[in-house]
Design a protein around this nucleic acid. Structure first.
Length: 291
DNA sequence: CACTTGACCTGTCCGC
DNA sequence: TGCGGACAGGTCAAGT
């Protein structure tokens, strides 16, 4: 589910709520998703104080003063929702919330803090995962060894972007955007939105796209990621931020989930098709496939 | 080797 | 209303 803007939105929320909190209890029974032993959890998590919440690619890093970190991937349907002690476990949040009483049937891990606040890891489809690791070992995990650069990093340029994509000149460009080892954090929504912005057909081979158009794609990608973070991400079905609130980016989406509606640029009806195994939205007039 | 396809899960929606 | 099948925002492993 969540892509870079959604994970970043959760990070911002958690980083406001969690630092300083001390973990008092952790409830979990999900060996596949959270394989650490109760002994490890007791030793390195219970009693530890949260120092910071960071993000790399679509992965959240909750750092602790025990020199351990919680490494969390939300995958498709993961949610990390904070409930203050005064909210009890109920849904009585002042903002429209997608989540009701917690824990619920999708709750996989519950963190209880000293003072009675809670953090719930919910994941309907159980694709997500949680790992407790020594902070120093976090960069060594397979995913971080292979993942590409952050598209919003200050030192990441249009030229860097083009050079990374060019390593896969023979592939369709959407598949390359979705490949986390090329550039980190892009998923189905922002691949479709940025390709529409740059007027590139998702099946076009990277090798056929000019440098100028790759540069345009970089700009559209950065724009759409920044806009989405500003809007709190995209909520289609499951995604919520750290307070259980929806994101509003999809209100601004140009093609994603807009099949049958007019292209905002030319009025042609937007179509949905399948590319790289994923539902793919595009304007058949603006985004012509070069043969 | 590079690229594509299925698998992982649960839930929902759509057509018959 | 019931049932089967397709599909859902991500990533790996296995296959071609």
């Amino acid at each position: 589910m969540p892509e870079l803007p959604e994970v970043e939105t959760v990070r911002i929320g958690l980083d406001r709520l969690l630092p300083g909190k001390i973990i008092e209890r952790v409830t979990f029974d999900w060996p596949k998703g959270f394989p650490n032993t109760p002994a490890d959890v007791d030793a390195f998590l219970v009693g530890a104080r949260i120092t910071a919440v960071k993000r790399r690619a679509k992965v959240l890093l909750i750092e602790l003063d025990s020199k351990y970190s919680l490494v969390i991937h939300l995958k498709m349907t993961g949610q990390l929702v904070f409930r203050g002690a005064e909210q009890a476990f109920g849904a009585g949040h002042p903002n429209a919330s997608l989540v009701g009483n917690l824990p619920d049937k999708s709750t996989r891990v519950t963190f209880t803090f000293k003072g009675g606040d809670h953090l719930f890891f919910n994941d309907q489809r159980k694709f997500g995962w949680v790992r407790l690791l020594p902070t120093a070992e976090v960069p060594q995990i397979d995913f971080f060894q292979k993942v590409g650069p952050e598209p919003l990093a200050k030192d990441f340029t249009a030229t860097d972007f083009a050079n990374r994509l060019r390593r896969r000149n023979g592939s369709g460009i959407k598949a390359v955007l979705l490949d986390q080892t090329v550039v980190a954090g892009i998923g189905n929504i922002y691949a479709d939105e940025s390709l529409w912005g740059a007027k590139i057909h998702p099946l076009e081979k990277v090798g056929q796209v000019s440098d100028a158009r790759l540069k345009m794609l970089y700009q559209k990608l950065v724009d759409v990621l920044r806009l989405s973070i500003e809007k709190g991400g995209s909520t289609d079905k499951n995604y919520v931020d750290a307070e259980g609130k929806r994101g509003s980016y999809l209100t601004f989406a140009n093609v994603f989930r807009r099949e049958g509606k007019p292209c905002p640029r030319c009025g042609t009806t937007i179509i949905k098709t399948r590319v790289a195994g994923r539902g793919t939205h595009l304007c058949p007039h603006c985004q012509k496939e070069l043969v």
